[in-house]
């Protein structure tokens, strides 16, 4: 069973913009895949269909065999607990510490504060931010903020990690570091899907690359 399967998926936004057209793809468990394409090609939309942030207008999206396009709203939180999401705009909460930001998914999943704290520190350690756990996100550099975002994505030990332009706002050295981090997660069995417009970055990894062009998978 593929980790992610798209069958003839189309997404048309209200207003008529057609973001995806007849997209069909399979991503096997443990695979690392780059999703490239010009700005507006539909990369973000494709990623958003996986955690049911958006729903497809046509076709079927399966995640670990579950049809997430037709999933009941009440079941969506449980789907998302098994997915790690790294957003282009990071979406860190600035009213709380780095530690509390990473804690949020575990608190929502109902872990005891003690177990959760252990896992938060383990996640912060993995991204090299253990000594910054008390810092406010605003006090962190761009690269550190991105790493904090990754720590929050992996703290739930997801089987699938999705990242939308994770290196968009950081310099090349840091981008390499971030990518190395994703490769490490992939090596321990996590399925990783990274959307990026940076073809050079994708080319450096011996991974499958899917190219989107005006909403369709380019051959």
């Amino acid at each position: 069973m593929p980790a992610i399967r798209f069958q003839e998926v189309g997404k048309r936004y209200p207003g008529g913009h057609e973001a995806l057209r007849r997209v069909t793809l399979d991503i096997e468990p443990g695979e690392m895949v780059f999703l490239t394409g010009h700005s507006g090609a539909g990369k973000s939309t494709l990623l958003k269909l996986i955690p049911a942030i958006e729903r497809p207008t046509h076709g079927v999206v399966l995640v670990n065999g579950q049809n997430v396009g037709r999933m009941r709203a009440a079941a969506v939180p449980y789907l998302r607990r098994n997915l790690g999401l790294v957003f282009q705009d990071q979406r860190l909460l600035h009213d709380r510490s780095a530690f509390a930001n990473v804690m949020l998914p575990l608190a929502a999943a109902g872990l005891t504060p003690r177990d959760a704290a252990k896992r938060v520190r383990a996640a912060l350690d993995k991204v090299g931010l253990l000594d910054r756990e008390r810092s406010d996100p605003v006090a962190l550099s761009g690269g550190e903020q991105q790493r904090l975002c990754i720590a929050r994505a992996i703290v739930n030990r997801p089987s699938i990690l999705l990242a939308d332009e994770p290196t968009a706002n950081i310099d090349a050295d840091l981008a390499g570091e971030i990518m190395a981090m994703f490769r490490d997660f992939n090596r321990v069995g996590v399925t990783v899907m990274i959307a990026t417009h940076d073809l050079g970055l994708a080319a450096r990894f011996a991974s499958r690359t899917l190219r989107l062009d005006h909403g369709s998978i380019a051959p």
Partner: peptide, 16 residues
């Protein structure tokens, strides 16, 4: 608002 949106994205239920 941000907290609500992020909570939803990381798997919080509406009741939570």
């Amino acid at each position: 608002r941000d907290e609500v949106e992020v909570s939803r994205l990381v798997g919080a239920t509406e009741a939570w």
